[in-house]
Design a protein around this nucleic acid. Structure first.
Length: 569
RNA sequence: GGCCCCAUCGUCUAGCCUGGUCUAGGACACCUCCCUUUCACGGAGGUAACAGGGGUUCAAAUCCCCUUGGGGUCACCA
């Protein structure tokens, strides 16, 4: 059989008039199995940047051909994630101003008749055939091959040569059947803009399934048909798809389709080089539960039965909502995996985009900080690295910190407020608008994330009479050290504060500073720290005068009195 | 295991294609000091890498080969 190794089409034959065909069309084609993973987000970002930088089209397609794994709500989830990141799509499912387009539907599950048309065409042309092997038979052969120590390859001798009459009869009798692609014999050379050229030896690609027994096309088939029909010119996807490219090329040749340009992006992994997956959350939870020797879930988290089942079987995974509930109960933080996790943790979308782009690509010239506009203009496949990147959350945090401290105060306050309203409704309810503004203002320069102030300043929203004090070393030292210790300073400044007629940070400072000068050798810390402990219960808070001002005079005084009483006055 | 790909500080990377300008640059982390009312921020320094071995060459991080190590993939999942 005269199969020539495919080469990229030099002059593609356009399906549509040239006028309406953009020079560059990229697509992001996730399967809707949950939220958008950061790795997926990086792929989407690069696809977007590449197309937009060339004035082309970026489209989104939902690959929901796996009936078991797909759900409508899941796809909506990462549409929102993408929109939050600022990665807009020109064509695809509609969300707000994004999406639409003339090449839909953009859900593969709605394109079955299209696939069937091409499938029939292939079978008719003898380029594909029905196969009636059962899963059990196939598994046995795979197993045998493994035992024998060689790679399993599908043997077409039986099914590919079945007489048409037999095939029709079996089909009519309702035997389960798949359709396999008759892969021509010969080596296949993949040309990749990132990885270069790679040739798979003959026999590496066997007769793979293109339609499943349930009537749905496999990923390989749907991708090839859709990329052609949606006139995709550049396929940018994760490196795990590299070997699949050969299958896609076989299909393109069989169907007479154009060949898009390929670029396979390096993977993003955990710092220990393991795959980043939501499994990592389960791992953290399991370790905590085992370390603490817990036999029951914390109150108000998950049921005992669910807990037992999860703990008994390492392969059981908690749902996202269950996991975060349990994490809250155990007071552990889960590793961020999905875009939404980073949003909840208070990362800025523009920072996440910036940092993600740096994993696998760099503009050179020692430039690290840039926005998506810059990325759009500068991104190119030549500078994409070939090696997998370990995702460094610490560096991301540093970038986030820089961005936050670098933004105008009003912007921080506004963005923190939005974050609070979404993720810390309880906090926002217990604090007035003015108080929040003051707190956010005071937290601005010490915030690494939008979330931090809500976690470290919970003392603001507890009732004065319910505040408790840490009994840590630092607290004891500050309050009960050698005389004159913190406690005596507290007793002494109390009347000073009571005498304050104006209760602003500046006014309080004016009252306290002279006291410190006189009674603490001008060492403000000797007075500030006990005050901080008294009103916050711990050793960390925004600057003390701000803290007192935000709390209000009444609250502050009650807390100080209670503290004195608690620590023995 | 077969096949494919890859290999620069702890990490992300620049440099490699078109050998000399590399006593290998930046960033994060780390260490030291300074600043400081806590926590942060900030400022000044510092430690730290061309996986190993052969070639080619006047000259190799840069080109070639081998070894080792890492990753991907081998589904009626995508």
């Amino acid at each position: 059989m005269g199969f020539t190794p495919p080469t990229p089409a030099r002059s593609p034959v356009p399906l549509l008039p040239p006028m309406s065909t953009p020079s560059c069309v990229t697509r992001f084609a996730p399967s809707p199995s949950g939220h958008l993973h950061v790795g997926g987000a990086r792929t989407a970002l690069f696809c977007w940047a590449y197309a937009k930088g060339k004035g082309g089209t970026f489209l989104l397609r939902i690959e929901d051909t796996d009936q078991k794994r797909s759900s409508d709500s899941a796809s909506v989830g990462f549409l929102k994630d993408l929109a939050w990141l600022g990665i807009g799509w020109d064509e695809g499912p509609v969300l707000g101003t994004h999406g639409g387009g003339a090449h839909g539907p953009y859900f593969q599950s709605e394109r079955l008749d299209i696939y069937n048309r091409y499938l029939a065409q292939l079978v008719e042309a003898g380029k594909a055939y029905y196969a009636f092997d059962t899963t059990a038979e196939l598994d046995a052969k795979r197993q045998a091959a493994k035992l024998a120590g060689h790679a399993y390859r599908y043997d077409r001798s039986e099914m590919a040569n079945l007489p048409k009459a037999t095939v029709d009869a079996w089909l009519a009798e309702g035997h389960p059947a798949v359709i396999r692609c008759k892969t021509p014999d010969g080596p296949i050379t993949i040309v990749d803009e990132v990885l270069g050229e790679a040739t798979l030896p003959a026999g590496e690609v066997d007769d793979f399934v293109i339609r499943k027994a349930d009537g749905f096309p496999t990923y390989h088939f749907a991708v090839v048909v859709d990329d052609e029909l949606m006139r995709v010119t550049h396929v940018l996807r994760a490196q795990e798809h590299f070997n699949n490219t050969a299958k896609h090329m076989v299909l393109q040749d069989a169907l007479g389709f154009r060949r898009p340009i390929y670029g396979h992006l390096p993977l993003i992994t955990n710092p220990d080089a393991s795959k980043m997956s939501k499994r990592d959350k389960d791992k953290v939870l399991r370790k905590t539960v085992i370390d603490r020797k817990l036999t029951a879930p914390p109150q108000d988290t998950i049921t005992q039965a669910r807990f037992d089942a999860w703990l008994a079987d390492k392969n059981t995974q908690l749902e996202l909502a269950e996991a975060s509930l349990l994490a809250t109960g155990l007071q552990v933080t889960l590793p961020e995996i999905n875009v939404d996790d980073f949003r909840q943790s208070g990362y800025l979308p523009e920072v996440l985009c910036n940092f993600l782009a740096l994993n696998g690509w760099s503009p050179g010239e020692n430039v690290e900080k840039f926005d998506t506009e810059f990325l759009k203009q500068r991104f190119d496949l030549k500078r994409v690295v070939k090696t997998p990147a370990k995702f460094d959350r610490v560096k991301l945090l540093s970038f986030n910190c820089d961005a936050i401290t670098g933004m105008p105060r009003e912007e921080f306050v506004a963005r923190a407020r939005l974050h609070g309203q979404e993720f810390h409704a309880d906090f926002m309810k217990k604090i007035t608008g003015a108080q929040f503004e003051q707190l956010a203002g005071a937290s601005h320069e010490r915030s690494k994330t939008l979330d931090e102030m809500f976690r470290t300043n919970r003392f603001f929203i507890v009732a004065d009479e319910l505040l408790t004090w840490d009994r840590s070393k630092n607290v004891e030292k500050a309050l009960l050290g050698a005389e004159p210790n913190g406690l005596s300073h507290l007793k002494a400044v109390l009347p000073v504060l009571e005498a304050c007629t104006e209760w602003s940070a500046a006014a309080i400072e004016q009252a306290i500073t002279p006291y410190a000068a006189q009674h603490a050798e001008g060492n403000l810390g000797k007075v500030a720290q006990p005050l901080r402990i008294a009103v916050s219960g711990g050793t960390v808070s925004p600057p003390i005068f701000d803290t007192l001002a935000i709390l209000g005079k009444a609250s502050a005084l009650v807390r100080i009195r209670r503290c004195i009483a608690t620590f023995g006055g």
